[in-house]
């Protein structure tokens, strides 16, 4: 058991969140979004994903390559190649844009729903499990305080 409060505080205390960062190459319009801070992952589905992205990133039916990056090893300068794999990415998927919704509460952003057209299902499941484990950890923190009674 620790004796000092500082021993319970780590750099995690100052991390703003959990999860992968994403950069995008739009294969249809030949454009890129190489600033991961502009993209937020909103939902992970079995066969697709919803992202919040800058307006004009894509149109319905566009094909996008999504590159998942580990936030702890983010390169100082992200340079996505014009074609092919991006070697810094821990995972890459190709998607088709199904639906676009304007975000009325955040200027110049849209929600983009897409389905996967090329994906390594096993790796995708692993990523989903990682996020699920994080949610379980959060649930545990909120509910553990009542566990005493169940044990009692």
């Amino acid at each position: 058991m620790t004796k000092l409060i500082s021993e319970c505080i780590s750099s995690d205390t100052f991390n703003s969140g959990f999860g992968y960062k994403i950069v995008v190459r739009n294969e249809t319009s030949r454009t890129q979004i190489d600033k991961p801070e502009l993209i937020a992952i909103k939902e992970l589905k079995e066969n697709g994903i919803i992202l919040e992205m800058p307006s004009n990133s894509c149109q319905k039916s566009h094909n996008l390559s999504l590159f998942f990056l580990n936030p702890e090893t983010l390169p100082a300068k992200i340079k996505i190649p014009d074609t092919g794999r991006y070697k810094e990415a821990v995972m890459e998927v190709i998607t088709k844009v199904e639906h676009i919704e304007v975000n009325e509460n955040k200027k110049n952003t849209i929600y983009v729903e897409m389905t996967f057209s090329q994906i390594d299902i096993k790796r995708w499941k692993k990523i989903m499990e990682l996020y699920h484990a994080n949610q379980e950890k959060i649930d545990g923190m909120l509910l553990n305080q009542f566990r005493r009674r169940e044990e009692g």
Binding site: S16, F18, K45, I49, Y131, H132, Q135, E136, L142
Partner: peptide, 27 residues
């Protein structure tokens, strides 16, 4: 962004749950 302060906030207000984005059905 589920940070430590978000969890502490939900604990303090005794909320029923905090759902980390991105959503997923199982979670």
């Amino acid at each position: 962004e589920i940070s430590q302060s978000e969890v502490a906030w939900a604990l303090d207000y005794e909320m029923d749950g905090i759902i980390a984005m991105p959503l997923n059905g199982t979670s």
